[in-house]
Design a protein around this nucleic acid. Structure first.
Lengths: 202, 202
DNA sequence: CGTTCGTTTGACCAGTTGGTCAAATCAAGA
DNA sequence: TCTTGATTTGACCAACTGGTCAAACGAACG
């Protein structure tokens, strides 16, 4: 929004607060997180924290907005003029990489949705729905042209979201069941096989 | 555990508390829920609620235990002697029905896992892992016998969990994007097509 | 040096939290 | 009816919550 000039110390502390908030909110949700918790994680006193952000809600909202800005980039990048199967597959793989590289962001989003999306309900039925509908048209076009098998575009997208985000959101369960911490390679291979089998035309 | 005889009024109030707790905990998580909230939803006063359960934690734990008892039933029911593809498919369909019929239970579980599974970590690496490993052996046997395509059993199970639970846990998002409330039939058809394409041998 | 302005903090506040307790109420049997 | 035990509640508490504020600190600049 407004980009007032920031001193180095402001930039550093704001960043520290956002990181601490991400850690905390992504684990305990909005109501389950406390300012003291976030302040301690950021290495600041509580009043100091409130010097940089006016309220707990402001920290949370800032995080959500930053998240929404980047969260849908991979879907936006899906190109109607590319090779259909490769476009869909690389979208899925990019999402899987995000689960590996940004699990806290994934869990923050999951928490928000689980609680009924009180802060971003409008975004879901606005921007998000519009974007998904657009891409659904593209996918339906690919299917109609016989480039991929006939598939419900919306539910295909839901499948990619759920399959990939599961590894970030349910990380504890995945690691407990597998008995190891490194799921990425196997998950990638599995996801590739699962989606390709469904998408190959004929 | 101990089944002391319960009066009708005890049974009724305990049930009301558990229902209210399920509503609340599944939406706000453990730390985000308050006893006052639960008491009001149960139609009881807070001290009255604490007459039936010794603490907030006890309500939450009771709910989680009741959940774990039934949550894995569909997976347990997967029969090594049945038709492989139909066994896997009906497992997936049963899980999808559970997302439709017991979304609060699904969200309660999701919340617990998101927060690092503090109450059921042992269960995950114990009972759950054992059960999944057993079924993985069965699935691997089916693949070795050429009854289904070669697939990573653990990640296949993760796929079924994520694909089905997504509709309960991310219900708000699903309904916002679809623009309608009724996802069950379409999700079932999609899931059937997705899994069958991957599992058919040859 | 002194001023100025961005930064930090200790003390504080009102409201909420999980939980306690003694007293009151109720239901049912003797 | 009276008694007994189960049930319910208002009053209360200590700890914690998000948030405020005046005072103190800090660094850069004249």
């Amino acid at each position: 929004m407004s980009d007032k000039p920031q001193t180095r110390i402001q930039a550093k502390n704001r960043a520290a607060i956002l990181t601490a908030g991400l850690d905390t909110f992504s684990q305990f949700g909005f109501r389950g997180s406390t300012l003291d918790q976030i302040a301690e994680a950021a290495g600041l006193s509580k009043p100091n924290l409130l010097y940089y952000f006016p309220s707990k809600d402001a920290i949370y909202t800032a995080l959500l907005e930053r998240l929404l800005d980047t969260w849908l980039d991979p879907l936006i990048a899906m190109n109607a003029d590319g090779d259909p199967i490769e476009e869909i597959m690389s979208y899925a793989m990019r999402k899987l990489e995000m689960s590996r590289d940004y699990p806290r962001e994934s869990r923050l989003f999951a928490n928000e949705i689980l609680q009924g999306a009180p802060h971003i309900a409008g975004h879901l039925s606005g921007d998000l729905r519009k974007l998904v509908d657009e891409k659904a048209v593209v996918i339906r076009g690919w299917a109609a042209a016989g480039k991929i098998a006939d598939v419900d575009p919306h539910h295909l997208i839901f499948s990619i979201w759920s399959l990939t985000q599961h590894y970030a959101d349910f990380d504890v369960q995945v690691r407990a069941v597998l008995g190891k911490d490194d799921w990425y390679a196997d998950a990638g291979a599995h996801l590739d096989g699962l989606l390709r089998a469904r998408l190959l035309p004929g």
